[in-house]
């Protein structure tokens, strides 16, 4: 345990130090490394990233993998693979996401996000990319 050796606090009994170390270990064990719940086809996801860049999605959304722009008008899509509902309305599935990307107001009435001029295939590719984002550190 390198971490323990680096922290040297003088004046504390070795037993107390051991106890503190065990507590830290127990806390660290609470959160197992998360598995991405959806693993998209790499080629399709790469295509999706191109679609996202060309359609200018990042004008309103911060999107992992897109360095510029990182618009703030819409929600950030960082950690998108872990969110519960798409736009707080639809179950987070790749199919729902593809439909939402192409015509958001049709699947979620009143949505701020307007219809985006992309083909169904492009929408599916973009959804594969977004849904497959695994940016847990």
């Amino acid at each position: 345990m390198r971490g323990q050796r680096q922290i040297t606090i003088t004046g504390i009994q070795p037993a107390a130090r051991l106890l503190a170390g065990l507590c830290l270990l127990a806390v660290a064990a609470c959160k197992p490394p998360e598995e991405p719940r959806y693993t998209p086809d790499k080629a399709i996801a790469a295509e999706g990233l191109q679609v996202i860049k060309q359609a200018g999605c990042a004008a309103c959304h911060e999107i992992p993998g897109v360095t510029w722009p990182a618009g703030r008008l819409g929600p950030s899509l960082r950690g998108f693979d872990d969110i519960g509902l798409i736009a707080g309305a639809l179950p987070n599935t790749a199919e729902n996401l593809a439909a939402f990307l192409r015509n958001a107001p049709a699947v979620k009435p009143g949505s701020t996000m307007p219809p985006i001029p992309i083909t169904p295939d492009e929408a599916r590719a973009a959804a594969a990319y977004l849904y497959g984002i695994d940016d847990d550190v």
Binding site: A59, C60, P114, I116
Partner: peptide
């Protein structure tokens, strides 16, 4: 710098 459609207009 951005494609021109309703989405990017709103964003801009």
């Amino acid at each position: 710098i951005l494609p021109n459609h309703r989405g990017t207009l709103i964003g801009w």
